[in-house]
Design a protein around this nucleic acid. Sequence first.
DNA 1: TCTGGGGTCCTAGGACCC
DNA 2: TCTGGGGTCCTAGGACCC
Length: 425
Amino acid sequence: MNRKPVFALADCNNFYVSCERVFQPSLEGKPVVVLSNNDGCIVARSNEAKALGIPMGAPVHQYKQLLKQHRVQLFSSNYTLYGDMSNRVTSILSKFTPDMEIYSVDEAFLDLSGFTSINYDKYARLIRKTVKQWIGLPISIGIAHTKTLAKVANYHAKHSDKTGGVLDLTSPRYIDEALKRLEVSEVWGIGRKQRKKLESRGIKTALQLRDMDDKDIMKIFNTVILLRTVYELRGISCVSLEAIPSTKKSIISSRSFGHLTSSLNDLRQAIATYTARAAEKMRYQGLATNHIMVFIQTNRFRPWEAQYSNSITVQMPVATDCTHELAHYALIGLDKIFKAEYRYHKAGVILLDLIPASQIQQNIFDHQDRDRYHGLMQALDKINLNFGSGTLRYASEGFEKPWRIKSEIRSKRYTTSWSELLEVT
DNA sequence: TCTGGGGTCCTAGGACCC
DNA sequence: TCTGGGGTCCTAGGACCC
């Protein structure tokens, strides 16, 4: 007989903000936000900041007054710090289960299916307490027989004080109530468009969605994705745990610029820089590519300016993981789509159709010395790993980088840089 | 002045074949 | 001049996630 699976979703509360608070405990109880790359958007908010009515993704400039008035503490994003804190949390979680899926930087699904003799609620509270004690980060845990229901449980664990940060929905008793108290747009997989469609048909809660007719769902949405979500709400598990992370299919590196530019030289530097970052990520995962896509865009938030956006995919003769080869083809692509009459706001590269570097097909017309390239890339990565990213780089990336964004109020990389350790005086 | 970045999956529709 | 129907493969774009 097949026993029902049991999933626990552990999720760090307001992750980026909580990371900052670990190193500045005086910010506990005060409104704090973390900004996006360009210091342009608000991408994480403490509960106090949420209570002020600041929405996720809000442009900073629209909320300047409110932020100032309530003395909200602002941070530029410090991804090095958050990534390291994330690794520490998952290493603790892995002590509590043999099978775990790291779903995102602040979330993991734990497989508790084999744990037949434990009390899930007590076990989750122990996990929660351990993470708080060892790392200092607050987490919430939801438990259920499907991933989607575990998400529902996690939502209530986080939003209701009564739960104490843990909610177990494995017994059917509270499921209806939990679904009834959840807006349909909060269901995992229901985005803006589907929310509108559902609400226009009177479907406002997760409970109403769960009880919809299968045929109606297919008729309205014409996709199996939503049907799968509904089955999961009914307690039928359709989305399994993926303990082994699948290898990446594409790698993106892109950024908005600090200011608009029409200079081909700026764009060439930017594309060379993004290509170097993407190639570095790719080598780190042991992958290679023979398709690189380049894109450039004007600023869509300035509709009164002439708009242009274009992309091009360049195929290379042989798959490679070598930065200067990739950059060579990326720049050829850029030259083809660049138009001097526009002012550009953003650019990026995407490495597509990734394959293991060990499976590169040779081409008999290829006369490049690939063994030497390989050694060069190894040396480059090693130096940058030991002495800091960007220590050794290609001249094509530029030195002044006038197009680069500012990140002005970043906290220190407390856990990954010897020169930025926390000082206690 | 100022509006993130990095991913995945699914579907529709065109091109092409027999 | 007629203008079928089934199949595959590929790509662009939409929708969603964190």
